[in-house]
Write a protein that binds this DNA or RNA. Sequence first.
DNA 1: AAGGCGGTCAACCGCCGGGAT
DNA 2: CATCCCGGCGGTTGACCGCCT
Length: 304
Amino acid sequence: MGRPPCCDKANVKKGPWTPEEDAKLLAYTSTHGTGNWTNVPQRAGLKRCGKSCRLRYTNYLRPNLKHENFTQEEEDLIVTLHAMLGSRWSLIANQLPGRTDNDVKNYWNTKLSKKLRQRGIDPITHRPIADLMNSIGALAIRPPPQPAPSPHASASSYLPATSLPLVHDVKYHASGILQPPPPHQHQQAVIARVGRDAPASPDHGQQELKWSDFLADDAAVVAAAASEAQQQVSGHYYHDVAAAAKVAASSSGGGGDDGAAAFIDAILDCDKETGVDQLIAELLADPAYYAGSSSSSLEMGWGC
DNA sequence: AAGGCGGTCAACCGCCGGGAT
DNA sequence: CATCCCGGCGGTTGACCGCCT
């Protein structure tokens, strides 16, 4: 059973907001602030649901919102963050000052996902569609699971083949939109910006980034994925995040934004708990990993 | 000129987490 | 501890607009 409606639907206006309604809402919020949305319609003289008022304010009327088109830099950041965070639009929007989660979500659904598809990238996994098709084909003909690996077996046996790059996926889609600079510099620059570009949080009701909120879920997914070596796609996704966080941590020099730092710390903690940190360390030490990544960009035809 | 069609985006819906009681 | 209520979130819808035939 879901929550009961927050207001009497029969007496509530729906649909597009009129300039008069906007003016009333703005006048109210400018003098009384934005607390307790349930009471706002009544006090502001609006026949709207409180929820509708909140949405109108946060998505359209709120000060400092940008209403112009997304810049190339913003596009790049959205794609990169989507690869790391998935459809956690509010988290992504937090990294784009003046943009709302609704803005980012709409822009992704209407423009960016298509753009990626046109470039041969699957917008859900952020991997080359050709690689995905290869993976599906490989899974279909893969022999039954082998007995448990020996204690000396390389951790990379749990990881995707080198033809399925890990953290480099971030570079993939980013460079699909931007003119790609040299791989490692670009990769670090984009990821490091997640911390640097955190909003200045002009109001006192600063919304603290809760990066760790989603980590538990992802870690659970990863743990399951790690236990099933065949489930390479989801495992791969987590490695993207963890490895990207390591890159960000190493490039940030340890200081910087609290939210991003907490995010990175939480990921590193998860790494230790799940043993993924060991896997990544071994992976990064494997020359084949780099060889695989460099060829992938060329395969995409974007030529660095 | 008009109807069809697809793209865009504001707004709504229902679920969830967390604080208050 | 259970329940209620609120704010927040992601997914979805539908109105509007421009382009094409």
